[in-house]
Amino acid sequence: MDVRTETRLTTTSRDGTRIAYWRSGEGPALILVHGATADHSRWETVLPLLEPHVAVYAMDRRGRGHSGDAADYRIEEEGADVAAVVEAVADATGGPVDVLGHSYGGLCLLEAMALTARIRRAVLYEAGAGVPTEPGLADELTALLADGRREEVVSELLTVAAGVTPDQLASMRTLPSWPNRVAAAHTVVREVRAHDGYRLRPERFGSLAVPTLLLLGADSPPSEAESTAAVAAALPGARVVTLAGQGHVAMLTAPDLFTAEILTFLRRST
């Protein structure tokens, strides 16, 4: 039986924060940028499907896992973190690289696309750009965190903001990555507030020629469709693929479909 191996690497972002990322698999480079409450381990359900085809570089975003953090938080620095990993991997592999960002990680990837020319192709899965969360959610999460109810912070974000169903949430709780989500609960409030304050400025991206796949769950909240349409209008090289019967976490609910769409896009865009 094959045993997975992964290697931890690090790079330094522009503000001096150390960012860790994990390499596994063989083939062209694909950087994975996770969303809120997670770390690089959230990709556990799809790594076995990706690794035979691509060399995966899965980030720990700042404030969790083996990555560092900074006293002040700005989403622009998260974009710089992604760009720093892109530059490091491109240097190591000798060419531009592909990047996949999910949810808030997709928003970080969008920011990175304006910072580096070494992204060859991009996949954004429901980045949520320009569409705020439910009114009062950030304050509710702040109160839960202050009370030490970290697991409720994670559950509330997933169900209210991401539309995760009770069955999907129960499944997520059984995964080895769940304790890492709870450990990252302190990052949730700052990301929700940054997300709610984010303004998509199409003029920043109009000159980009990066082929981009925008994944959208057919069963996701309407806000995700609204956001995806706005991002599609801002990125000249973007096309939207809707995942039938899926919501915000298709890597969990339909890993074969999820990876097939990504690999098909990467092959057709070569």
Rank of each mutant, 00 (worst) to 15 (best):
A36V: 15
A36M: 15
A36K: 08
T37N: 09
T37A: 13
A38E: 13
A38L: 15
D39H: 13
S41D: 14
R42L: 15
R42A: 14
R42K: 14
W43Q: 05
W43E: 01
E44Q: 12
E44Y: 13
T45M: 14
T45D: 12
L47M: 12
L47A: 07
L47P: 01
P48A: 08
L49H: 02
L49D: 06
L49E: 07
E51G: 06
P52N: 13
P52V: 12
P52K: 07
P52M: 12
H53G: 10
H53I: 14
H53N: 14
V54K: 01
V54G: 02
V54F: 02
V54Y: 01
V56Q: 06
Y57L: 06
A58R: 08
A58G: 09
M59A: 09
M59S: 08
D60Y: 12
D60F: 10
R61T: 13
R61H: 10
R62V: 04
G63E: 10
R64C: 04
R64L: 08
G65Y: 11
G65F: 13
G65W: 11
G65L: 12
H66Y: 13
H66S: 05
S67L: 08
G68M: 08
G68D: 11
D69W: 15
D69R: 09
D69S: 13
A71T: 13
A71F: 11
D72T: 15
D72K: 11
D72C: 14
Y73E: 08
Y73F: 15
R74Q: 15
R74K: 11
I75V: 15
E76I: 14
E76Q: 15
E77W: 12
E77C: 11
E78C: 11
E78G: 05
G79L: 12
A80G: 08
A80C: 09
V82A: 10
A83I: 01
A84R: 00
A84H: 00
V86H: 02
V86Q: 04
V86G: 09
E87R: 00
E87D: 15
E87T: 11
A88F: 01
A88Y: 01
V89P: 03
V89I: 13
A90M: 05
A90Y: 00
A90L: 06
A90G: 13
A90F: 02
D91H: 02
D91S: 14
T93N: 04
T93E: 14
G94C: 09
G94E: 12
G94N: 07
G95S: 05
P96G: 05
P96V: 04
P96C: 06
V97T: 02
D98G: 03
D98C: 04
G101Q: 10
H102D: 15
H102G: 08
S103H: 12
S103R: 11
G105Y: 04
G106I: 07
L107H: 01
L107P: 00
C108N: 05
C108D: 07
L109I: 06
L110Y: 01
L110N: 02
L110D: 03
E111S: 02
E111Y: 01
A112F: 00
M113R: 00
M113K: 01
M113L: 09
M113H: 00
A114N: 03
A114M: 04
A114L: 02
A114C: 07
A114I: 05
L115K: 03
L115Q: 10
A117E: 12
R118N: 10
R118V: 09
I119E: 04
R121A: 01
A122Q: 04
V123D: 07
L124C: 07
L124F: 02
L124S: 07
L124M: 13
